[in-house]
């Protein structure tokens, strides 16, 4: 999937590259959403979310070239530092909920289990496993971004800085791997899944959590403002069908796929819409990760959809064949 540079990168424009479907490589996708970096305004460009006519996966095409990562992930990017001091009560509530989910996923693993979180960001999830899980587990994280890795290390976590494909981590060594809201960010999801699969012991499990394009929030906002687009940082976006297809392509078995509750895409879709149409900052700021009211309302809202199998996030449990 070598990209072709389509911009000289001068001035403020992003250097872009063309790509095809991340699963099958087809290049004649159907344009679904067209929008901008509403959240961070890192670039003046407009981005296009294409849907593969076979795989139904959504992908950004063209997308920022690898050289632009430092720019599209600015220093204030939330995944680098979701700290308690910054986010207060929301941090507490989210921590409890996430911890319960993680432990449920991890299930029955041996006391000496080795667990890896690929795309660990500031180490939020690893920290929860450390606090609420067994103290005998060995926990490690991987993140490409030095700022994220540094934030996680400040929490006293073990973090490998680089890409999982290139780090040379021990193969067939891990019991469980997590990719929590990571797969949508990576340039080549199939290569990453294969690499993670190699790290797993035979029968070891990979839990993938990502935005769900089979959800009502996607349907309502897909033309432009959907929070899950996170233009231009989400390169591939999945639904039940496409995540299964990707797993199949990479030799992983699908144990199960389900949807889970998240208010975030609802809240950010509304935020993006308000921001796009020039709503006053005072109103826009009520629809972010630091607005308890909006997050609570949409948690209730999305719970109803999740019960109908259409939650805002999708969670796939995959397994390296024994």
């Amino acid at each position: 999937m070598a990209g072709v540079a389509v911009d000289t990168g001068s001035g403020e424009r992003l250097l872009l590259e063309h790509v095809g479907c991340p699963i099958c490589g087809r290049t004649d996708g159907e344009p679904i959403g067209v929008g901008e970096d509403f959240e961070y305004r890192t670039a003046p460009d407009t981005f296009l979310a294409m849907r593969c006519r076979d795989c139904t996966v959504l992908y950004l095409d063209p997308r920022p070239a690898p050289d632009e990562m430092g720019r599209i992930y600015p220093d204030e990017y939330h995944a680098f530092d979701f700290t308690e001091s910054e986010f207060g009560v929301i941090h507490k509530v989210r921590s409890r909920l996430e911890a319960r989910r993680l432990l449920k996923c991890i299930g029955d693993v041996p006391p000496d289990a080795r667990v890896i979180d690929v795309g660990c960001g500031d180490g939020f999830h690893l920290d929860l496993l450390r606090r609420y899980g067994r103290s005998t587990w060995s926990l490690e994280g991987v993140d490409l971004d030095p700022r994220a890795a540094a934030a996680a290390r400040r929490r006293g976590l073990t973090v490998h800085e680089g890409t999982v494909e290139a780090l040379g981590l021990p193969e067939a060594a891990y019991d469980v791997a997590f990719m929590i809201q990571t797969i949508e960010h990576v340039a080549d999801p199939a290569t990453v899944l294969r690499a993670v699969s190699r790290l797993l012991k035979p029968g070891g499990r990979l839990i993938v959590v990502t935005d769900n394009t089979g959800s009502p929030d996607f349907r309502v906002f897909r033309r432009r403002h959907w929070g899950g687009y996170h233009f231009p940082r989400h390169f591939s976006l999945f639904n039940d069908r496409s995540i299964r297809k990707l797993a199949g392509r990479t030799g992983l078995e699908v144990v199960g796929v389900e949807t889970i509750v998240s208010p975030v895409n609802w809240v950010y879709s509304i935020r993006n819409l308000l921001d796009d149409y020039g709503a006053p900052e005072g109103l826009v700021s009520h629809f972010t990760l630091s607005s308890p009211a909006a997050l609570s309302v949409f948690t209730v809202f999305d719970t109803a959809f999740t019960m109908a199998g259409k939650g805002a996030l999708i969670r796939a449990e995959l397994r390296r064949p024994a």
Partner: peptide
């Protein structure tokens, strides 16, 4: 349109 400009990769110059 913004959609065509994005598809071709010239939106930053529009």
């Amino acid at each position: 349109t913004n959609r065509l400009a994005a598809a071709i990769g010239v939106s930053g110059e529009c």
